[in-house]
Amino acid sequence: MKARERLWGYNSMEGFVALYIFMLAAFTGYEVISRVPVILHTPLMSGSNFVHGVVLVGAMVVLGEAQTPFEQAIGFLAVLLGAANAAGGYAVTERMLSMFRSERKQDTTKR
């Protein structure tokens, strides 16, 4: 975004740097999940669902820069949906994982 480049004097996400981030992030996601026991599949799906709720941040920026009523309306919708994704995702995941809290013997080797 030009505005940011101007304000900032440089653009941190220039061209290929972003592509490298894409690549490394993809490998990270793959690695993080490759050794997950089946019992955690549902909580992890829910947890990753929560993490992409960070779209809220993008929505806030967009609404913050909105000029016309049209942009405000769509931006409002974006923040509303993003906030719902993040808050609901957290509530659900936390509830699921709270069941793993007890002191029962934890079998971590099971896949």
């Binding site: 975004m1 653009n11 941190s12 996601g29 990753s48 941040v57 993008g58 967009v62």
Partner: peptide, 20 residues
């Protein structure tokens, strides 16, 4: 949007979700 937090969180979830 030039937002690294969105890029990293999004792509990590995208690839983890694909594997899942």
């Amino acid at each position: 949007l030039n937002n690294p937090a969105l890029i990293i969180a999004g792509i990590v979830v995208g690839s983890a979700g694909s594997l899942l």
